[in-house]
Simulated assay, not measured.
Amino acid sequence: MASRIRIDQNKASFVQSLILNSDNPEGIFETYADIVAFAAAVGKKYDYRSPLEHIAQEPSPISYDVFMSRGYDLLINVLAITAMGNLDVFSENGGHEDKINIFEQYANGGLSYLQEQLTGAIDYQERLLLLLNKERHNTNPTQEFDLSRFL
């Protein structure tokens, strides 16, 4: 598949600040695909979905095959199915591009949320762990069935 997952230009520097490499030893994620997949899950969790306005040149769009090789194609499919409310994403009439667009929108929304939450943080890893821990222990009385009691 020649499809590529794109990142919005206004999130590019934030995404680059999250990547772990020799220039950025404080980074959290090993690959851009990891960042985008995590952001898409966050976007779905908080129902933040926003279209991309300007496509970033750096980091360049990521091949869909990278997401498949890391097992994120399941996440892409589930997000598309829940967003569309049907299985049309598996049709041969352009369903693939629809699910890519939905995934990009959730990732963009999730990146916006993460960027807002991590603003001012010196150590992104510590702040992100605090956010995840807060979410883990968040008791939401509107939940019908709370699985956290089994942890």
Rank of each mutant, 00 (worst) to 15 (best):
L132V: 15
V66Y: 10
D73I: 10
V36G: 01
D34K: 01
V89D: 00
Q125G: 14
L18A: 01
E53D: 14
Q9P: 06
E104R: 02
I102E: 01
V15C: 03
S50E: 10
A107W: 00
G71I: 07
I62F: 03
P25W: 13
L111Y: 00
E135V: 09
G43T: 05
I122G: 09
F14S: 04
K11Q: 15
G85H: 06
E53W: 08
A121P: 11
S60K: 04
A2D: 15
Q57H: 09
F29D: 01
A56H: 06
I28M: 02
T119L: 13
V89Y: 08
P51V: 06
V42H: 00
A83V: 13
I7K: 00
Y124D: 07
F67T: 07
S112Y: 05
Y46K: 06
N21V: 06
Q16P: 06
M68K: 14
K134H: 14
R4E: 06
Q9K: 10
A37K: 00
D8E: 15
P25S: 06
D65K: 12
N10S: 14
K44F: 10
F29I: 02
D98W: 11
P61L: 02
S50K: 05
E116K: 15
R6G: 06
P59H: 05
F67I: 11
Y32Q: 07
S17D: 13
I5A: 01
I28F: 02
E116L: 15
L18R: 00
I35N: 00
R127A: 07
E58G: 02
D88E: 15
Y113T: 09
S112D: 15
I62R: 01
K45W: 05
N108Y: 06
I7N: 00
E97W: 03
T31Q: 02
I81V: 15
Q125F: 14
K99A: 05
T31K: 01
A40K: 01
